Amino acid sequence: MTITLAEELALLSLDDGSGEARERRSASWAVAGGILLDLVLAGRVSVSGGRLTVTDESPTGEPLLDGRLALIAAWTGRRGRAPKVTEWLTKDQAEAPTATVARLCERGLVVEERRRVLGVFPVRRYPEADGSAERELRERLRAVVLDGADPDERTAGLIALVHGAGLHRLAFPGEPRKEVAARMEKAAEGQWAGEGVREAIRDMGAVMAAVTVATIVAATG
């Protein structure tokens, strides 16, 4: 089963048993970034100099991406110049995870559970229903980051987003963070994609890193 980068990032962040989202704030930015990077890889948008341009509004055939593409096209169309990537991610990071998890439910990879905390506060959890996609994802990440295999451009982009957002422990629980981070940075910076995609990956990774720093400062301030 081929799933989007955003769905892969969401699977990494959801606890398999409880369905609770871990490292929610950083993961939400990464999920929004995953959608954008998939649209870059599909040739629908471009990211250059930190700015976002829609280059092709035709559907990709993937509902999650096409829904976001329509929103981006309408949003950028109201602006006089190409907006910054950070502007779109700031706008979308609160909504993208909801749309992404809904798509995971449609695929049957997670199931929605509704309950009330203390009998009053409604919460939703998304425990794993089918672990095949996540197992394949983790095997692919492990092959590149820990075993040194060459990544394709999607995997390199995924690694850049995970690394930039500081989600190393979600991707590689139990592995030394410092060693994993160094290997992920090397993999993300390799020459695995065309220049336009590499520039997008660099920009997205920089955005994720900046967000991660801001999140840490806010949490400790």
Rank of each mutant, 00 (worst) to 15 (best):
E87M: 09
P97L: 08
A82G: 06
L89T: 15
D150G: 14
E179K: 08
T220G: 03
V54C: 03
A182V: 13
L170Y: 02
G43K: 02
G221F: 11
L11F: 09
G67H: 00
V31L: 07
A70M: 07
R202P: 02
T220W: 13
E106L: 11
R25F: 07
L9H: 05
S26E: 13
R24L: 11
G119W: 10
L39E: 00
A218C: 06
R103S: 15
R198C: 06
W29G: 10
T215C: 07
V101N: 06
M208K: 03
A218V: 10
D38R: 03
R154W: 04
A32K: 01
G194H: 07
G174P: 09
T53H: 10
A182D: 13
R103C: 09
V85W: 00
L104E: 04
L37W: 01
P127T: 08
A181Y: 03
A30K: 00
T76W: 01
V217P: 03
E112H: 05
D15E: 12
H168F: 05
S46W: 01
I201R: 06
G131T: 10
V207W: 03
D152G: 10
Y126A: 12
A149P: 10
D203Q: 10
S18Y: 10
G108L: 09
T98Y: 14
R22H: 06
D150H: 15
K91W: 15
A73T: 05
S18L: 13
A156K: 07
W29Q: 07
R183Y: 12
A209G: 05
A187K: 10
W29S: 11
P97N: 05
E179R: 11
H163N: 12
V110D: 04
A10H: 12
G34A: 02
L137D: 10
S13T: 13
A94M: 12
A218Y: 12
D56L: 01
E112C: 07
E57Y: 03
A160M: 02
A188T: 09
M204K: 02
M184H: 04
L65V: 02
R68P: 04
W88I: 01
D203R: 04
P151Q: 06
E8T: 09
A182W: 14
L109E: 13
A129C: 12
S26R: 15
V207D: 01
S26F: 05
E134D: 07
A219R: 14
R202D: 05
